[in-house]
């Protein structure tokens, strides 16, 4: 199988990404791996929830029922989180941050249901980091204009620019690697517990699942979203008040 995907191996270890089948895409050999399948399952769960929520909200009542309560709770939590850290710009980014939060959270806790978390694949987290990077660049150019952008690069002295550029490029890499390594370490830990202690692994690994999947996953989701919001707010600067 080779190194078509990072951490792909033929060793029979539980936490590896496994290729399921391969097909030819314009001469390239493309693998469909467990990540794709798990991602699809996560996506279907989220879409199902969204469709149900949409139907529920279309005929919303003044006294919310059980499901309407849950939907309102989720939306209020996400909106509160975004508006508390982005202030005036919250309205523009609440949608994106909310989507990001729900996707990463469901992906991280999918380990609870026996899936290999899709976020334990660098191919999933790097695009998320790159999207954040594009958002930062776009908002910097939009609100600080090209002059402010170049001025920001030349802080504190013009010859400091290469170091500032490296610092900017490091943002998506560190963001994505942090999420990836955290989820991967949880996955590896659980695979080791089930693989090495399979004789005595009854019931008590549930405690580890709560820590590695629920707690760690929720914290990392929160951190990814908070850092994205911090960077974007920083990129907007004072631009929004003038506009």
């Amino acid at each position: 199988m080779g190194n078509t995907v990072l951490l792909t191996g033929t060793d029979d270890l539980g936490f590896m990404i496994k290729g399921i089948f391969t097909y030819n895409f314009f001469g390239h050999e493309v693998w469909i791996t467990t990540t794709h399948v798990c991602l699809l399952i996560v996506m279907l769960v989220i879409i199902g929830f969204c469709v149900a929520a949409n139907i529920c909200i279309k005929k919303a009542q003044d006294v919310p029922g059980r499901f309407q309560n849950i939907v309102e709770l989720v939306v209020e939590l996400l909106d509160g989180m975004v508006s508390s850290s982005m202030g005036k710009a919250a309205g523009k980014f609440a949608n994106y941050i909310g989507t990001l939060f729900i996707f990463i959270f469901i992906s991280n806790i999918s380990g609870l249901f026996g899936l290999r978390p899709p976020t334990a694949d660098y191919g999933v987290t790097l695009p998320l980091g790159v999207i954040t990077f594009c958002l930062i660049l776009f908002n910097k150019l939009k609100y600080q204009k090209l002059s402010g952008f170049i001025k920001g690069l030349c802080e504190p002295w013009p010859f400091w620019a290469p170091i500032n550029i490296i610092g900017d490029v490091a943002v998506p890499i560190s963001l994505s690697l942090r999420l990836f390594a955290n989820v991967l370490s949880g996955t590896v830990m659980m695979a080791l517990v089930y693989g090495l202690l399979s004789m005595v692994a009854y019931a008590w690994p549930a405690v580890l699942h709560v820590y590695f999947d629920l707690f760690s996953g929720a914290i990392q989701t929160y951190v990814f979203c908070m850092l994205t919001m911090t960077y974007v707010t920083d990129a907007i600067g004072d631009g929004l008040e003038e506009a």
Binding site: L177, R178, A181, S185, Y222, V223, L227
Partner: peptide, 16 residues
């Protein structure tokens, strides 16, 4: 928690 998660990154690079 935010600060700790950022500080954790260097350790995670070692793990990687």
């Amino acid at each position: 928690l935010l600060g700790q998660a950022v500080a954790e990154t260097t350790g995670l690079y070692g793990l990687l």
